[in-house]
Design a protein around this nucleic acid. Structure first.
Ligand SMILES: [Mn+2]
Ligand SMILES: [Mn+2]
Ligand SMILES: [Zn+2]
Ligand SMILES: [Zn+2]
Lengths: 138, 138
DNA sequence: TAATGTTTTGCAACAAAGTTGCAAAATAAA
DNA sequence: TTTATTTTGCAACTTTGTTGCAAAACATTA
């Protein structure tokens, strides 16, 4: 599993460091989305807060994880499963946030419908976030 | 225009205070969305930061304005045009955020398409936010 | 209009979240 | 192994948001 993670880092021209391996590993073994605070909890006192911020930022830039906007103004991060590239994400799937348990699901098989914008408007990114209760909490 | 604004406040069982009139007026004369910082700028040193926070919170609760989630983790507020009620918003329209000029548009005539969720998932709120370049910046 | 009760405001103090510069440590390249 | 490059942790700081409480503003009633 570590080799797996290291491969991803190398493929993206990133130095393989302990924090990056550890954080990427967390995403791999946690098929929901993670907030900055979640990562801080899971990694304990192991890494500095600043390192986590910078690592997440790097991962987003490289197209390894994508961000998910939420109604309550907290940023969530989840692994990219599509062929995302630096500066150009393709995670056009719907996200579901459970109000009860807090879990965020990447609904990979549900693609975001095409929106026909008013004349002159150019789309570069679309987020479709549904919140409510998940199957376990309903 | 002030009477207009006062009416809205009274209709929602809110005391008519200067800060509430002023802030609601801002929304009326600004048909995009406003961030907390925007309001702080427009009203100058007139009101305390805390008052603005509390006023926005009150407006959201009463269904006078609604929030718009953004990819960059900043909360935006916009006037409700539909028949929103306390604790129950009906602003199911698409939002567009221009990366260039920063303007946020409520695309009232574009309703959010129905999403068929996996079995057991219950929807309570759906946000569809498109970002890119608006007609003025394209 | 004036007196009274209720709500809202501003202040201060605090907590949480995020950013930046820089020297030390870790990693990659030679 | 040595050297060059990148990343990390620390400290200090900024920005954003929250809370308790007394003073001020507002609504109500007489
Ligand atoms: Mn996702
Ligand atoms: Mn809107
Ligand atoms: Zn749940
Ligand atoms: Zn624009």
């Amino acid at each position: 599993m570590n080799t797996d993670v290291s491969e991803i880092l190398k493929r993206n021209q990133l130095s393989v460091t302990e924090s990056r391996r550890r954080i990427l590993d967390l995403f791999k073994n946690n098929n929901g989305a993670l907030a900055h605070a979640d990562i801080e909890k899971h990694t304990g006192e192991q890494f500095d807060r600043v390192t986590i911020y910078r690592t997440l930022q790097t991962f987003v830039e490289k197209g390894i994880v994508h961000t998910i906007p939420t109604a309550d103004n907290s940023v969530l991060y989840a692994l990219c499963k599509d062929d995302c590239e630096p500066g150009h994400h393709h995670d056009n799937h719907i996200h579901f946030i459970c109000d009860q348990c807090g879990t965020t699901y990447c609904l990979d098989h549900l693609t975001i419908p095409q929106v026909s914008l008013p004349h002159g408007f150019r789309e570069t990114r679309t987020d479709l976030v549904v919140s409510g209760k998940c199957d376990k909490c309903a």
